[in-house]
Nucleic acid binder design. Structure first.
Lengths: 157, 157
DNA sequence: TGCGATTAGATCGCGCACGATTTATATTCC
DNA sequence: GGAATATAAATCGTGCGCGATCTAATCGCA
């Protein structure tokens, strides 16, 4: 063997065990897959769901404002919002005071769907078994992730 | 107003504050963006980086084994591995004992690159400022995320 | 007033991620 | 041995996510 492994045998089985990035990546994949099942009822994707929630909490936002909330750029949001518009969920129109900005509003159907979506977080918790031990630690988990993400964004800027 | 908000004003600014899923999503985006910068030196994407690390820790894996490690299916891995093969990083060949399975090995260049990648985790930590407080909590964070991801995968299955 | 700089979105190309389906090989069981 | 079944990977279509670039509208400032 010209390349003997300097690692214990278990590293062949769990080569990513010490990597936060991988745990976040894998958790993100897992979340997305479960969300697909839950959101399929409305034909929504996860980022589309986020847009509806954002607009429910405050309608008539600009593309840029949505981007700040979701950490996405116009190159991602523009086609996504066009698909949502085609699905009759939102309306897009240029701001008359500044023709550069596009304002996004919930349509009537969009508001109906957005209101129905209030049950989604509960559905997700129920689907994962609502372990009270885990639920109690979620605020800490969120705080750690948000702090880490802020550092990463700062480093990438 | 036909739809007065039942929420405090701050929910317009931070509508996703209480959602773990969103913190994970946002952290995953942030990680990916910083990784792009770091991996650009080798022309690698993050999942391609993961494949190289996996093969460095244990070469000659099947597509299915890689999928179990990375939580990906052949519909994602096959084109990804073909791009890596085209880039001269890996070799793909059918297993002679079972012609259904494809085995993936590091090429000579792939091994060189994989060895160079050992500096990547350190580069990432350095780029984010290596806060000792945060580093100390990473094992807990990883454990929480892995446990959550396992529950999500179980629920989605 | 006018022109360079800035800003908001849109467009394009590429690489994931994944549901659904297909192809090819192995296995099972009679 | 041969048909039904199972398994591994590949293929196809769609929707993100993002770097790079473009267009159009606004702002700044002499």
């Amino acid at each position: 063997m010209s390349h003997p492994s300097p690692h214990p045998a278990s590293s062949r089985e769990k080569p990513f065990a010490p990597f936060v990035c991988f745990s976040i990546y894998a958790a993100s994949l897992a979340f997305n897959r479960l969300y697909k099942q839950v959101l399929d009822r409305w034909g929504l994707t996860y980022p589309q769901y986020l847009v509806l929630v954002a607009l429910r909490e405050g309608d008539d936002r600009t593309v840029g404002e949505l981007g700040e909330l979701l950490f996405l750029e116009s190159n991602t949001l523009t086609p996504l919002l066009k698909r949502m518009e085609a699905a009759g969920l939102v309306e897009r129109r240029r701001d008359s005071a500044d023709e550069r900005v596009v304002r996004v509003q919930l349509s009537e159907r969009g508001r109906t769907v957005a209101d129905e979506l209030t049950c989604v977080p509960g559905d997700m918790i129920a689907a994962t078994g609502e372990d009270p031990e885990m639920l109690a630690h979620l605020p800490d988990l969120i705080a750690s992730l948000d702090s880490l993400a802020a550092k990463l964004r700062h480093a990438a800027a």
